[in-house]
Write a protein that binds this DNA or RNA. Structure first.
Lengths: 204, 204
DNA sequence: AGTTGTGAAGACTTTCACAGCT
DNA sequence: AGCTGTGAAAGTCTTCACAACT
């Protein structure tokens, strides 16, 4: 895939796609690296360097073509290619909030299953996708060809579930817990812990 | 403060503190850079280099003293020093889930206020801290000396609230929305968007 | 005049390798 | 023997600076 670019570049390109999407919706046709600098805080040099890794050019003397650039980046990082099937594990308040979240709508990501340890919760909670007890984790992930998991279980259950997910060959785990997970390759973890975030912010 | 260390180092040290905390609770007295490598995936070289930025040493031929190291890092990044007052903005499902989260208990962070645009929700939701309508944002932040904000409002309201927060001189914003915020210095933003996380994971 | 794209320089980070300590 | 701490090398990323294009 897109390992032909550095990690910082990849992170910026991903954000760029979202930004370009907004520009596009506002009817903006071109955008310069300078404008993007003002919007993002990254220098225009860095932005141009990032864009230069793309296999195709879409520049003009007025800047980059917004729609084309968005597509080129998306293809490069294959963000939009195929549907990416996800599940939520832990349907407590946080899990339920995520289930409710409509931001997945226009994206390549689709929640196709939810899991919880409580049979009662599985039976009563109403969601757009089916819910299962966590004992069915392996079966359903295989059956539904699920690639990504959003982990919203209590902290002390997190590593156990993560192990099972890695075992299933899940590609990525979005970790909402404060647990510092360790999983086997090639599964990856992306941490979204509020605690870590606050610590990070306060350490300046 | 602790700008005497690089950003990657700071990020790792923060995680290290949490890890050391776990070791400490398990009664472990010393830990070597090699053990930490196995736990984290960072190389022992990097870990030793990180630790070497600390103003004080706590090493022995058996490795680092777990408790001492934890304290030295915490002081260095002043993570534990004083109480850090936080608020949650947007008391929808996500905000309510965060209000419920007990991970703040042992930490330096304390949620002292919540805000929502709905008067009804402010009146009915039960939390450990007082709730206010979002119109009182500036007043309460000043009055309660709030330094950090957790943003859990709908995406299209996010930038507006962020502007007001920056105006108040808030130190940091934990952004749970998918909005790409731009705020004035010295306010900082830490993004916790599930979308960004999934995109990041799938771009490999 | 304003734009991109990119060599070359510079800054930063990690890794290597080993002296020195207990 | 096993550990840390750190110069020096290697590697990575950003910034500078400018040619080339419209």
């Amino acid at each position: 895939m897109a390992s032909a670019c550095s990690k910082p570049t990849r992170e910026r390109l991903i954000r760029l796609v979202r930004m370009l999407d907004t520009y596009e919706k506002n009817g903006k046709e071109t955008v310069s690296s300078q404008e993007l600098q003002n919007r993002t805080g990254w220098t225009s040099d860095t932005i141009r360097r990032d864009i230069s890794v793309l296999p195709e050019s879409c520049s003009s003397p007025q800047g980059y073509n917004v729609s084309r650039l968005k597509i080129i980046i998306s293809n490069f990082l294959n963000l939009s290619a195929d549907e990416k099937r996800c599940c939520i594990i832990g349907m407590g308040r946080l899990g339920a909030a995520l289930a409710d979240y409509n931001g997945f709508a226009g994206s390549a990501f689709k929640i196709v299953a939810g899991f919880d340890s409580s049979v009662n919760r599985v039976d009563t909670l109403v969601t757009d996708f089916p819910l299962y007890t966590v004992s069915k984790l392996e079966t359903i992930i295989k059956q539904e060809r699920i690639e990504y998991a959003i982990l919203a279980v209590p902290e002390d259950a997190a590593q156990g579930v993560a192990n099972r997910l890695a075992q299933c060959g899940i590609k990525g785990i979005v970790n909402y817990t404060a647990a510092l997970l360790r999983v086997a390759e090639p599964t990856r973890v992306y941490d979204l812990s509020v605690m870590q975030a606050l610590l990070q912010l306060s350490s300046y």
